[in-house]
């Protein structure tokens, strides 16, 4: 049944939160600090799409549900939300003040981590097409393993942007930790099996 559904619905639905919050921000109905609230919401939605992307493999392994046809769209949604998160920072938050942004990128560890993750995601998004998969061959799989590093950077970036240790980053860190841990366990089991 899933084989018949086009992945395009993910883009249709996926942009609804961003459009909804943007509308509220534009009409001054996003609280006292609309720019930062919008920026944070986009960042959290990026983590949610990252989680959805990372869920596809374990879901296929452990149940009979196979969302592999939608994984590219979910991964690209992660990228689009990080892109919007960055643009909100760049345009609305910092007002395109390049010297200030330059200092941020050089001096603020959480921004350095966030930017690193963003650059990594650009590479993944740019190669998220059938032509790249064909051309890069086995290299494509190796390149896209970067997603594990990017997910980790995303969560650390969240922790570093907040004061103290509030619960929200922990929730994302735990879920992403379990999803990455699942892959590690699978890798170790495969290696043992290969050795035996």
């Amino acid at each position: 049944m899933l084989a018949k559904i086009s992945p395009w619905w993910i883009y249709g639905i996926g942009f609804i939160p961003a459009a909804w919050y943007f509308y509220h921000g534009a009409i001054n109905d996003l609280g006292a600090n609309p720019i930062q609230t919008f920026e944070h919401l986009l960042g959290e939605w990026a983590l949610r799409f990252m989680i959805a992307t990372l869920l596809v493999t374990p879901l296929r392994d452990l149940t009979r549900v196979n969302f592999i046809r939608f994984r590219r769209a979910l991964g690209l949604m992660t990228f689009y939300y990080v892109l919007m998160h960055f643009l909100t920072y760049f345009i609305l938050d910092r007002g395109m003040n390049l010297p200030v942004i330059f200092v941020d990128i050089l001096k603020r560890p959480y921004i350095i981590l966030g930017m690193t993750a963003f650059v990594g995601l650009i590479a993944l998004a740019a190669t998220s097409n059938t032509w790249s998969i064909r051309t890069l061959g086995r290299g494509w799989g190796r390149l896209h393993k970067l997603v594990y590093l990017i997910a980790t950077l995303g969560v650390v970036h969240f922790f570093m942007a907040v004061k103290s240790w509030p619960p929200r980053p922990f929730v994302y860190a735990t879920i992403i930790g379990v999803l990455l841990g699942y892959r590690l366990v699978k890798l170790l089991l495969d290696q043992r099996r290969a050795a035996a």
């Binding site: 943007f22 509220h24 921000g25 534009a26 009409i27 001054n28 109905d29 996003l30 006292a32 600090n33 609309p34 720019i35 919008f38 609305l92 938050d93 910092r94 007002g95």
Partner: peptide
């Protein structure tokens, strides 16, 4: 905060 205008009230 609270200068009004939402996103477009300036930074």
């Amino acid at each position: 905060l609270g200068t009004g205008g939402g996103f477009f009230g300036g930074t």
